[in-house]
């Protein structure tokens, strides 16, 4: 239960003169929901990028299940069990909602170097895709073009894509960004359902949501992790109050 599934050691990433990731050592235990909080521009998305493999760190190590994956690209990490949802929605706009999930499923079920057989005839794919859409609450929209969905529905589709690749670890970058209170509430309930079944690293701004969902929290400020602990520990931490929670109240 407590063995780390994901670990980083002294991860660094520099953009010109800006140290966006400053020697970050983080450990996400198998099965936990680990929240990553921090003010805007703290480097949360940059960190997620380095964890998912889309950004190369300048220094440091990323370990997954004990294995050094620092040099693996995003697609290789996805095959190991990483899934990511993007802060800025990233879906296949011209595909139907169903085909979005279908193409994600296809990545983990057999080779895609198949040139002759129509993929639409693979009922196993569409059945499973429908089940996933049902789970995230998009069942009625399967045949709609992804581009035409509302913002909240886009966020749900992001989660569906992450789920479809049968991940072990889900990296969720502000899944509730820009959502209204009702939609947010539904998303919190969805993530609650995913908790325990997947290891989750959750970047989120909404403190109520974080305190409800997280088992542990890490606080990132100006590229550095200034604290890691349980919800109560973080609430009581003076440095965090001063650096982050205080600032929230001013907002």
């Amino acid at each position: 239960m407590s063995a780390p599934l994901l670990e980083t050691h002294a991860l660094c990433k520099r953009f010109g003169g800006l140290l966006a990731t400053d020697s970050v050592s983080l450990s996400v235990r198998r099965g936990e929901c680990h929240a990553l909080i921090g003010p805007n521009g703290a480097g949360k998305t940059t960190l997620i990028g380095q964890l998912s493999g889309s950004l190369r760190p300048d220094a440091g190590v990323v370990r997954f299940d004990g294995r050094d994956v620092t040099c693996l690209g995003a697609h290789q990490r996805a095959m190991l069990g990483f899934a990511r949802s993007f802060q800025i929605t990233s879906i296949l706009n011209d595909f139907s909602v169903l085909d979005n999930v279908g193409v994600a499923l296809q990545a983990v079920s057999g080779s895609s170097f198949a040139f002759w057989r129509p993929v639409a005839a693979e009922t196993a794919l569409s059945t499973e895709a429908t089940a996933i859409l049902d789970k995230v609450g998009l069942a009625g929209l399967a045949s709609r073009r992804a581009r035409d969905l509302s913002h909240g529905e886009h966020r749900q589709l992001e989660i569906a894509l992450a789920l479809a690749t049968r991940p072990q670890l889900m990296l969720l970058d502000e899944p509730m960004a820009g959502m209204g209170p009702d939609e947010s509430e539904r998303m919190v309930r969805l993530i609650t359902e995913l908790k325990g079944r997947y290891t989750i690293l959750l970047v989120e701004h909404d403190m109520d949501a974080v305190f409800r969902l997280a088992d542990r929290i890490s606080v990132l400020v100006a590229g550095r992790v200034i604290a890691t602990g349980t919800v109560d520990e973080i609430r009581a931490n003076d440095a965090v109050k001063c650096a982050y929670l205080g600032e929230e109240e001013v907002d």
Binding site: A78, F95, T165
Partner: peptide, 24 residues
């Protein structure tokens, strides 16, 4: 209309997303 064709269309649509779904 094959698996390959759907992946190719996906890459045209959003290559970064296809990478993060596990496609080389």
């Amino acid at each position: 209309d094959s698996r390959f064709g759907r992946v190719l269309a996906g890459i045209k649509d959003n290559e970064a997303r296809m990478e993060s779904l596990g496609y080389a």
